[in-house]
Design a protein around this nucleic acid. Structure first.
Lengths: 248, 248
DNA sequence: CGCATGATTGAACCAGCTCAACCTTAGTGG
DNA sequence: CCACTAAGGTTGAGCTGGTTCAATCATGCG
């Protein structure tokens, strides 16, 4: 019978997937002070302009990070899932530059920035893991740029699907894996710089060409390699995440 | 008569623009071990796949960061200039995910990653500044995503011009400021996800509409606010950079 | 049942692309 | 000091991927 996991094990697992951590490191992470929060669909985890003395870590659920253009158009600049760190431990806290909004029911842990920084000072291995995590994040964000810039509609959607798929440690990257889309077609549009109309047509095209099977928000990838090739997807920043699962 | 600056003052200036640093912090930065390197136009500062135990910091010149799609198309995912940190202090070093290539004659300092990490441990103020710097970088990269996704050709080029302009501490963000483009039109195209043909037409359109004046690679912005509005440009991650200039 | 949100479809339109020249400028070598 | 060359910039004409606008069709939910 599996014991109930410590909430912060999501963070411990993520970090230990980046760098080998000692058991002392791991328990130090689980000993961090934190406050758990449940957030309903549509509510905000981060609001533009706010300053927070906490680092928020996603424990469960999905969220999207977005900005608004001057004309009021929303653009989604990232998707967040379990284990993601929503804001870096900057002191004094900088103003958030974007919104992070829950796509599903979400739980997050708020860890005092000062505690996290102190932990990095006392446990160099954790600092290394954190830097590696940020490095991987940067790479993912840059992949989004390349995705928007030099890929057509099918490729963009496919790339996003690959990324979403990799967030599931169990099945991600395998043939037949299933993605339960946390995004509506309108949100897919805002994440890929397209219109809802064209997203819809592209989804049907991907289905017609056998890249995916669809049943409402449920996407199945019969041939992962084929989709990844269409998407020109790079596994590197994602593979490292299959760390040891840490229990509380 | 101005004394010759310490090469690492580029880094010290950048960091002190993020967070108030003590004079002890500043001199600790200047005391870091480093190796200076000159890089000719077209040569690489970073190559995809390589692992480096050093953190490279741009001292002078411009470089662009790019990736190649499977079809061999280049996409530029960022521009680097004086003070930029090219790779995060991750240990063990991760494989670089992209290329960084000199656009002009460039000088960089290679600082052993371990030394930088040790500095962060011994000087918490420097760690704070480094996190703030990385945070600002992330925001800039996300701005690129939003730029590609929800902006038309004029806006994209204008946004890139605003960013380039802000890299010049002296005149950036002022009416009449001058940008000496480090990029060819082909590079502008790869950075904005357009074709050279359309970049060319867009430049002429921007000129015809009075947003810019042009003389070869020399761009002059008569009315900065007007250009920034067209670009929907956000100053936040850039303004903080006007730190105290640190001499050696 | 009625309503709201999300998905789907059709038809006209256009921003930006493709292809294919041609022009300009700064080097380079003689 | 000039002819030659290569890289970068400019231009035209036709084409297309994706948009716009405007409906219509699900489907969950109170």
């Amino acid at each position: 019978m599996k014991e109930r996991e410590h909430p912060l094990s999501a963070l411990a697992t993520r970090l230990s997937g980046r760098t080998e951590l000692t058991s002392a490191d791991l328990s130090a992470i689980l000993d961090l002070p934190y406050q758990e929060r449940r957030v309903a669909v549509g509510d905000y985890l981060v609001q533009e302009g706010e300053r927070s003395g906490n680092c928020q870590v996603m424990l469960t659920g999905f969220a999207h990070r977005h900005r608004f253009s001057a004309e009021g158009l929303r653009h989604i600049v990232g998707i967040h899932g379990e284990g993601d760190i929503l804001n870096l431990p900057a002191l004094p806290p900088a103003r958030a530059e974007d919104f992070v909004q829950a796509l599903s029911m979400v739980t997050v842990a708020a860890i005092p920035t000062e505690s996290l920084l102190a932990l990095c000072r006392s446990h160099p291995g954790i600092a290394n893991a954190l830097w590696a995590e940020v490095d991987a994040n940067l790479s993912v964000v840059r992949a989004w740029i390349a995705n928007m810039g030099r890929r057509d509609a099918r490729g963009r959607i496919a790339h996003l699907f690959c990324e979403l798929s990799m967030r599931d440690h169990r099945t991600g990257g395998q043939d037949g894996c299933e993605i339960v889309l946390p995004l509506t077609q309108a949100e897919l549009a805002d994440a890929t710089g397209m219109t809802t109309v064209h997203v819809n047509r592209t989804l049907r095209a991907l289905e017609a060409e056998g890249f995916i099977d669809r049943d409402r928000r449920r996407i199945i990838v019969p041939n992962w390699r084929r989709l990844a090739e269409l998407a020109d997807f790079r596994m590197a920043p994602w593979t490292a995440r299959t760390g040891v699962v840490v229990k509380g």
